[in-house]
Each structure stands twice: as structure tokens, then as C-alpha cells.
Design a protein around this nucleic acid. Structure first.
Length: 529
RNA sequence: GGGUCUAUGGCGCAGCCAGGUAGCGCACCGGACUUUUAAUCCGGUUGUCAAGGGUCCGAAUCCCUUUAGACCCGCCA
């Protein structure tokens, strides 16, 4: 067997970082600072896929640092993009009039940020903060206002004919053979996309445009008819996506950017533009698949099925998100909140491997698992293992105890010997599992068929439970009541499970009833008598 | 039209990207415990890794071909 040399911590992140380094060396570029970038998207509610782009870029940054290089993550908000569609659930804000305007020029419908775009970006940044990702924030609107891309825009527009042909050749889109890949924001109506750029006056660095009706999605958007000129260094406007990345990569000196397969074509064009037009080698890439919802549909920013970091964190720890995003990058994945319990236990398992409590025979796999654990802890793993409590067990307990949940579940865990002392982390876990159980384990009141004898027995049980005298052995009492009333104990127990738990089986019923509380159970049962 | 991904026990999936004993959950079977059922614990059964070819001492894993399904792009970002 040929011994494989293991790079860094043995994960795909390390492999990617090392590919990047080799490429940089081959290109002979300066490696004093290796910038990685993630685009944020500010036109819709940011879902976990957008978060993933930044989290993974951050992983590469960590890997580069681990290999001894300096690195930095730029989180770039595309807030000069126009609003194309009103996101699901935001119909009541009257955003219709703002369609096609840059999202940074639309007022925040919630009133808490300077614009619609900043509101959306902030949700994502908040998510990044919550999982511990550090970044350098930049905005498209500032980038263009400060003219940071003006040299690149100039070069691109001078070569627009060549670029237009190449776009047509590479991806079959013919639009840019006719129009410039630049969208001015119409000074009259504040819209882009409607302002079509027809000519570039290179000497003055100005773009001639006219604002007219255009189709966005399936809807027509009215232009205002304004005809004007836009100064690429001063006036608001932006490059089309097919060329914008290249300009940004060059201007910001970006060496790595991951991308989702939906923008594959754009990246292909941008790589060419960077290399051939701007004479600056494009950054190293990795392509990832989109997260799909359980039905196999793409999770879209503007459809209602959004899994945001914030929602996820109601049920799972920040580490469960990082694990999801770092465990692998390839492959299409269907994602739902029901993946959380699994990821929570998987993290515990990784921790056990890391601290040597679980043996892994394959050396390469051991290193990879340990490495993954370190990345999930952002290369700052804890000195000692945390106390593990099975998430599913917590869900079960949370289902039973709805009032004073934290306290009572904690007591049960101590009784079971799962934990030795109450810890704040455990309390947090109980809260997460409790939220999950509240949200997804909605207990529907099921129809239970009861004949008269069963009802009579049930009634006796309710009386017994409501009685003041101590029931030393509830289990025994139930059994006796069943026998004394010609009900098969087996059937009687089944009825009780159905009423109390909504299933035909469950834990041993006597202690279980005293856990929930006799009176509570009596009340529930009495509804069926 | 162009592109990407997926295919692994009855079901749902992991493992594949850096080749070395095919795994997990559910289901199923047995045991322990139980005054019933179960929970729980312990043990066990279940596989032509879609099909075919190639590389290799060795392939679920890498390469090629085929089949089936899903998704993305061909507005815009």
C-alpha cells in the first residue's frame, strides 16, 4: 500500500486549500494575503444555502491559516441588485412599486435598517455571527459609489463586443452582443434593468442609456422613457453578473470563491473575463449543489419554504449547522429541520472520536473525523468533551413534560443517571429539543374507540387517580381495575397509551403517569369517559 | 439545446471527493427486565453497492459507456 500524504487535517477543506496554494505558486502570485470571498445576496430572505457559501469560504480561510498563510473572508452583499420578485409572505408591504429598483434604495419595510437590502443582509450576517464566523463586510452600493471597480468597468466596456461574442459562444446567451453588460440606475426613476445601455463613450467614461419597458420574470416593468448618460465612476449602476465577479475579483484580489451550480454559467464567463480581458487570473473555485427541500425542489429565497439560520438555531446548536456544512460539499442534498436530531447526535459521536472514546481503525478516516470535529469548532476545539445527552431522549422527555420543562426534564436525567450535575449547556439542549418537540411533534387528538366496559374501567381509574390517598403502585391499580371489569389488561393499557401518548405503545405506564402528574392524567382521561 | 447531481438491506439514508473488513436509523427475530403491552438494555437476520467495461495486489469509492430519476442554466441576479 502506498502511504498517502495527508494534507492539513484531512478534510475536503484542506484539500481545497492545498489545491489553491499550488495554483498560486504555479501562477507565481504573491501569497502574503489570500482573500476568500462569499457573495451574500440581499434580495430575499437568506436561507441556509447562502449561509453555507460564507461558512465554507471561512473554512477555506481557516485551512489556509492552518497551513501557515494569512487569509481573510470578504462577505460581499449584492445590494445593488434590483428587486425582481416580492418574497413570499411579504405581499402586504406594498413593494410592488419598488420592483427593479436596487434593493439598497428600497426602504426597509420593517423599519429597522437603512434599506430593504440591508435588512436582508443583516439577517444573514446575524446568522454568521451566531455560528461564530468572522468576516469583512462590504456592500455593492459602497463599492460602486466609491468607484472601486471603475478601471475594470472601463476595460470591460471597451471590450464589450468581444465579451458579447464570447458569452454567446460559452453559454448561448446573445443579449450582450447587442447591449453593454452594464446596467445604469436610471436617474429619473431609480430603476435598473429598464435602463438599457447601448453605447460606451470611452473618453468620458460614460454610458448612454434609455429607460424603457422590460420583462422581468414573466412581468413587464415600465420604464420612464428617460434618456441619459451615466458616469461609470460616479453615477449609480452596476455590471451585469456575467462580468461583475471578474471585476470584483480583480479589484479586491480574491483568490477563492465557492459557487452554487445555479451560477455555473456566470462563473464560466467571469473566469474567462478575468483571465483574458482583465489579465488577472480568476480565483480558485469549488462548485456545490443547492440544498433541496424534502420534496426535491430547490430552496428558493422567494418561495415560502425557507430554512433560515435563525429558525434552525431554535432547534439545533450552532455546531449542528457547521457540521452540516463542513461534513461534505459534494452531492445534492435534501434538507429539512428533521435532519437536526441526527446532526446533533453526529456531533457527539465526532466528539467521542476526537477524545478517543470511540475507536476508529482506519487511520485516514480517524484523522478526517478528528479534522472535521476541529473545523466544526472553527479550529478551536474544546480541551475536554462536553456532557452528552441524546437529543432524541430529550425530545421524548420534552413531549411528556410541558410545564416546568427544564426543571423536570433535568430531574429525570439525573434520576436516569444520564448526567451527574445540572449544567447550563444541558438546560440549553432541553430548550432546543423542547422547541423541536413543540413545533414538529404536534400531538393530534386521536379517535379512540371505547366500549362501555372500557369506559367504566376508565372512569374508575380517573376516580382513583383523583383520589387523595397515595397510590403506592399505579401500575398495579390499573391492572386490578382492568381485571375487575372484564377488560383485557392488554387492551386497557393500549387504550391508555392511545389517549395519553397518541400511540399504541409507550413506556411503563405506572411510573409514567406519576411523572406526568396523576391529576393531569385524570383530567385527560376524563375527556374520553 | 447545454450542464450538474443521484442510484447502497423491506423502507429512509451514511460511507465515495484522499481505494484496504459495507454501516446507521426504522422494521424484523431472539434474550434480559416487566403482574399486560411497551420503553430500555444486550445480541442477531437482511446487500450482485443501478447495468456493463477499465485501472489496480485490492474498487461502493477512481476512469469510460449505458439506463433511470431529480435539479440547474438557456429572463435576471
Amino acid at each position: 500500500m502506498v502511504e498517502q500524504k495527508i494534507i492539513g487535517k484531512g478534510t475536503w477543506i484542506d484539500k481545497l486549500a492545498s489545491e489553491l496554494l499550488e495554483r498560486e505558486k504555479a501562477l507565481g502570485r504573491n501569497t502574503d494575503l489570500l482573500r476568500v470571498e462569499s457573495g451574500l445576496g440581499a434580495s430575499g430572505i437568506p436561507h441556509i444555502g447562502s449561509l453555507g457559501d460564507a461558512v465554507r469560504a471561512y473554512g477555506v480561510k481557516l485551512a489556509l491559516e492552518n497551513l501557515g498563510y494569512k487569509s481573510e473572508l470578504i462577505a460581499y452583499s449584492d445590494d445593488l441588485d434590483g428587486l425582481r420578485k416580492i418574497p413570499e409572505g411579504m405581499q402586504e408591504f406594498g413593494l410592488e412599486e419598488h420592483i427593479a429598483k436596487p434593493v439598497s434604495l428600497i426602504p426597509d419595510p420593517y423599519g429597522c435598517h437603512d434599506s430593504y437590502g440591508m435588512h436582508m443582509s443583516s439577517i444573514l450576517l446575524d446568522g454568521l455571527d451566531k455560528v461564530g464566523i468572522k468576516y469583512e463586510f462590504r456592500r455593492a452600493v459602497d463599492t460602486y459609489k466609491q468607484g472601486l471597480l471603475k478601471d475594470q468597468i472601463h476595460t470591460i466596456l471597451q471590450n464589450s463586443a468581444k465579451i458579447g461574442d464570447k458569452i454567446s459562444e460559452l453559454v448561448g446567451q446573445e443579449k450582450y452582443q447587442k447591449y453593454l453588460p452594464y446596467f445604469p440606475v436610471c436617474v429619473n426613476c431609480n430603476r435598473l434593468y429598464t435602463a438599457e445601455a447601448s453605447e460606451y463613450i470611452a473618453d468620458e467614461k460614460k454610458v448612454k442609456y434609455s429607460c424603457h419597458d422590460t420583462e422581468i420574470g414573466s412581468k413587464m416593468v415600465k420604464g420612464c422613457g428617460h434618456v441619459g448618460e451615466a458616469d461609470i465612476g460616479k453615477d449609480l449602476g452596476k455590471l451585469a453578473w456575467k462580468v461583475e465577479f471578474a471585476a470584483r475579483w480583480t479589484a479586491f484580489d480574491i483568490r477563492f470563491e465557492a459557487y452554487g451550480k445555479d451560477i455555473m454559467d456566470s462563473v464560466k464567463v467571469n473566469d474567462w473575463v478575468a483571465d483574458e480581458i482583465l489579465q488577472c487570473p480568476h480565483p480558485h473555485h469549488v462548485k456545490y449543489e443547492m440544498f433541496l427541500d424534502k420534496g426535491g425542489k430547490k430552496i428558493s429565497k422567494s418561495l415560502g419554504n425557507v430554512i433560515t439560520a435563525q429558525k434552525w438555531l431554535e432547534f439545533g446548536s450552532p455546531k449542528s449547522i457547521l457540521l452540516l456544512l463542513y461534513k461534505r460539499i459534494t452531492g445534492a442534498r435534501e434538507l429539512g429541520f428533521d435532519d437536526i436530531p441526527g446532526l446533533m447526535s453526529e456531533y457527539n459521536e465526532l466528539e467521542d472520536i476526537y477524545f478517543g472514546r470511540i475507536k476508529v481503525d482506519n487511520q485516514a478516516k480517524l484523522i478526517k473525523n478528528k479534522g472535521l470535529y476541529e473545523y466544526v469548532n472553527l479550529l478551536n476545539p474544546p480541551k475536554q468533551s462536553s456532557t452528552h445527552v441524546n437529543y432524541r431522549l430529550l425530545m421524548e422527555l420534552a413531549k411528556i413534560f410541558k410545564e416546568n420543562r427544564s426543571e423536570r426534564v433535568m430531574k429525570k436525567l439525573l434520576d436516569y443517571g444520564v448526567i451527574k450535575n445540572p449544567e447550563p449547556e444541558i438546560e440549553k439542549l432541553i430548550e432546543l429539543a423542547g422547541n423541536y418537540s413543540n413545533e414538529f411533534d404536534v400531538q393530534e387528538k386521536i379517535q379512540v374507540d371505547l366500549d362501555d366496559t372500557a369506559k367504566k374501567a376508565l372512569k374508575l381509574l380517573v376516580e382513583a387517580l383523583n383520589g387523595e390517598e397515595e397510590l403506592e403502585d399505579i401500575q398495579n391499580t390499573i391492572y386490578q381495575i382492568a381485571k375487575a371489569n372484564d377488560v383485557q389488561p392488554k387492551d386497557f393499557f393500549k387504550i391508555l397509551y392511545q389517549i395519553i401518548l397518541g400511540t399504541s405503545r409507550g413506556p411503563k405506564i405506572g411510573p409514567f403517569i406519576s411523572d406526568i402528574g396523576r391529576k393531569q392524567v385524570a383530567k385527560t382521561l376524563s375527556e374520553y369517559v
